[in-house]
Simulated scan of single mutants.
Amino acid sequence: MSSSITPLLLVDGYNIIGSWSPLKSTRDRHGLEQARYELVETLINYTVHKGYKTQVVFDSQYQKTPSSVEHHSTHLSICFTAWTQTADTYIERVCATFFRRQQINHNRIIVATSDRDQYLTAMGYGAEWMSVEVLAKDIESSRSQVRHKQRSNKRSRGRLLFNCLDAQSQEKLARWL
């Protein structure tokens, strides 16, 4: 899949943290920073598996800081909004830009949130919506698929040392025999 047509997944970060029991529990026990970290770690593998470009958006509206973007991988970045901006307004702006086709880097935008107003706005701009529950189930399904594929790869190699070699080494060994 070409990077110019990669779907963009916009994640309303604090909304997800406040909606997922494990992340809510982490937030309450260990603080917001740890909950953000766990959310990002959860999304990294999911993003690669699904072929998404993901941007996790966090509010910074009550801190007098400019907006910033941190790139955690080629597929996932984190945006902290500017002092006067909410995650909702940031996501709405991205959806509006997509709707006007001013940004053609993505053929789809998916907004992950449980915020009803955000859902209606995103859909109004032609973006797709993914509920918090659906995102959680999809992440678990992706994890399961990856584990199944890893088990299948281990089984298919068999017990012979020959099967553990890369193709080039197997070819050299076969010529010797």
Rank of each mutant, 00 (worst) to 15 (best):
Q63W: 09
W129D: 02
L135S: 07
S73I: 00
G51D: 08
A122L: 06
S141Q: 15
S77E: 14
D138S: 11
H49V: 06
E133S: 10
F80H: 05
Q145N: 02
S114L: 09
S68K: 06
K50E: 09
V146R: 11
D117W: 07
F80D: 02
H72P: 02
W83C: 15
V48G: 06
C95E: 01
E70D: 11
R151N: 12
K50N: 05
Q102G: 13
N107G: 06
T65Q: 09
H71M: 13
G51M: 10
R143A: 07
A96I: 01
D138F: 05
S142Q: 04
T97L: 04
F80N: 08
E41M: 06
M123R: 12
R147N: 11
L76M: 04
A127L: 09
T121D: 00
V132N: 15
H71R: 14
E70G: 05
E133Y: 06
S152C: 05
N45Q: 11
H49L: 08
V111M: 01
N105V: 04
F80V: 09
D88L: 00
A127Y: 00
G126Q: 08
E41Y: 04
H148G: 11
F80S: 08
S68H: 01
L43Y: 07
Y46K: 07
Q103C: 15
E41T: 10
N153Q: 14
A82H: 02
Y125Q: 10
H72T: 10
I139C: 06
S67C: 09
M130I: 10
N45A: 14
I139F: 04
Q118G: 10
L135I: 10
Y52M: 04
Q61P: 04
C79Q: 07
R101G: 10
A122R: 00
E41H: 08
R93N: 12
F80R: 13
T97C: 07
T42C: 09
Y90N: 04
K64H: 10
K154G: 09
V56I: 15
S114W: 07
R143N: 12
H49P: 00
R147I: 10
Q63E: 14
P66T: 12
T121K: 02
M130E: 07
D138I: 11
T89W: 03
E128T: 09
T97V: 05
E41C: 12
R155F: 14
E128L: 15
Q150I: 08
C79R: 12
A127N: 01
T97Q: 07
E128Q: 14
I78G: 02
K137P: 05
T84F: 03
Q63V: 15
S141T: 07
I109A: 02
S73C: 03
S77H: 05
R93A: 06
V146D: 11
T42A: 08
Q63F: 09
A136F: 05
Q61C: 12
Q85C: 13
R151T: 03
T121A: 01
R151E: 05
R147D: 07
Q55N: 13
T113L: 00
H71C: 11
I104T: 15
I44D: 10
V69P: 01
